[in-house]
Design a protein around this nucleic acid. Sequence first.
DNA 1: AAGATTAATTTGACTATCAAACTAATTTTT
DNA 2: AAAAATTAGTTTGATAGTCAAATTAATCTT
Lengths: 152, 152
Amino acid sequence: MNINHMLNEVLVKLFRNINIIEERAICSGEYKDLTANDMHVIEAVDMEGARNMTSVAKTLGVTTGTLTIAVNSLVKKGYVERVRSEEDRRVVLISLSEKGRKAYLHHQRFHEQMIEAIVEEMSAEEQVVLEKALVKLDRFFRKSNTPLQADF
Amino acid sequence: MNINHMLNEVLVKLFRNINIIEERAICSGEYKDLTANDMHVIEAVDMEGARNMTSVAKTLGVTTGTLTIAVNSLVKKGYVERVRSEEDRRVVLISLSEKGRKAYLHHQRFHEQMIEAIVEEMSAEEQVVLEKALVKLDRFFRKSNTPLQADF
DNA sequence: AAGATTAATTTGACTATCAAACTAATTTTT
DNA sequence: AAAAATTAGTTTGATAGTCAAATTAATCTT
């Protein structure tokens, strides 16, 4: 079993299970009513607040129609607020509510723990190698696919 | 911007887009009618052939009901064959058709290219470090969640 | 003012998912 | 050997997420 093969094995597992894993880790306890998808929307809306639908949809790589539905549900659950822009009344600005900001921070903590778990006991050199590999993976995906998705 | 933060950034992007990315890369040209999900089922059925529903469902971490529906569609599209076992007539054995085996190999090639792109220009030492990091990531996910899923 | 464009929502269709009910076959118990 | 329990898989009913296309409303261009 060579190293390429092992790398592949680990990546396949991660790919297959990443959503389930994230969902279980993040959407627990206080945030049981959030799906992994909801969390991605919250993450995209971000703490800065007041982004319009089109730009958030682009970040997420979904149509605005899809985002409308996700936001409907998040508004109903109280994580997101929806305000019509005063400057341009076609535009809808979405932002995190207090509850939404808390959920975002909870999510951030999960990510921090994850990173912590990965890099702990790694030397600085090792961390650099890992980061290089992830950047390459990112670049591979970008290259092997047609443009799309501004933020990716 | 420290390395932890950069790692997080890259991982977040990968998490968010992994399905879209895989789908675009794999389910193209000849295999336009396959979803990323279909491909995961094909991957789980594997070349060895003739696995029963329950074991494949366990590998994928879905219920047999869900798998039944996925297999219905794959049978209709001609990638998978469904045979009732002779020894135990409750059991349904599924295996890849010729077309399914071809799709599987196509998928494998994608994975190989991906790994290739990641490890190219990495020294053997660097590859070892990367693998260690991924194993840690895998372990973190297992640990931070209740058991579940035999194969994961 | 009319026409074109843009932002978001709605609609209709489809895939993926689960839990629970169900069907059919096999095993165990009595 | 008949009845009861278990097992394998499918079906059903409900929900989430997705897209493309139609629609609505506001703004910009000519």
